[in-house]
Design a protein around this nucleic acid. Structure first.
Lengths: 117, 117
DNA sequence: ATATTGTTCTAGCTCTACTAGAACAAGTTC
DNA sequence: GAACTTGTTCTAGTAGAGCTAGAACAATAT
């Protein structure tokens, strides 16, 4: 898997990392049960700190996309690869866009309901 | 126009302010040529600093949504009133994707609510 | 002329993100 | 069982963004 990070972006590094994994899983580049690189190793290869990678991994865990276990590393869950991850990413993008327009969650939900008919 | 701001949000105050104006324009609550409140006045009524409001206004100017002139204030441009089209398209895409996964509108709305936090 | 309103500058405070290093705990591997 | 791997937790320091504050200034409106 290829993970790229832009240090000059205003998006935090750990968030970029999480987004990269989310996207790779959604596009089928990663499968359930597959292991992500160890945090120390990935930190080295990206030129960032161990804690930064771990924070990204922990965010993915909070979203239910990976399981973290000592001695074993970060393993993709079913949820990460069942397409939900892709939808999640799309939803995140829409939410960002809606926020930029100053919409509340309910404003956006109205739009969704309209579109669902 | 009603501008509300949440000091406890992780979204910067100046960005919230810009979003509020963007959204009001996108929803048609504001029209091209209309004047926004003066920065000092708005800062007072929101309980934030003059510079914070000005930074929000400047961001809107950088986006081409308002023109700023001394003695005159912030005036909405034509461009400010065309925002919804992109979001509508993104929402349509998300709904299609959700349908493909067999989700109901309420399933999707749960996702939106989660993401909005 | 006078008042209004954005512009610019300096300064200080707080919080987040990132880095760094160390010790620790749970799991894997042999 | 022993050694190794890997995430977890803790402390600590640095840099930058965001916000506030106050003042002086410049262009425009009335």
């Amino acid at each position: 898997m290829l993970i790229r990070i832009d240090p000059s972006s205003s998006e935090p590094l750990f968030a970029q990392l999480a987004a990269a994994v989310r996207g790779a899983a959604a596009r089928g580049e990663l499968r359930a049960g597959e292991r992500l690189p160890g945090a120390r190793e990935l930190a080295d290869s990206l030129g960032v700190n161990l804690h930064t990678v771990l924070r990204g991994y922990q965010q993915l865990r909070d979203e239910g996309l990976v399981e973290l276990r000592r001695g074993r590393g970060a393993v993709l869950t079913e949820q990460a690869t069942n397409g939900l991850a892709g939808l999640r990413q799309a939803v995140a993008d829409v939410v960002t866009q809606a926020r930029r327009l100053g919409m509340t969650d309910n404003d956006l939900i109205d739009l969704i309901r309209t579109e669902f008919r």
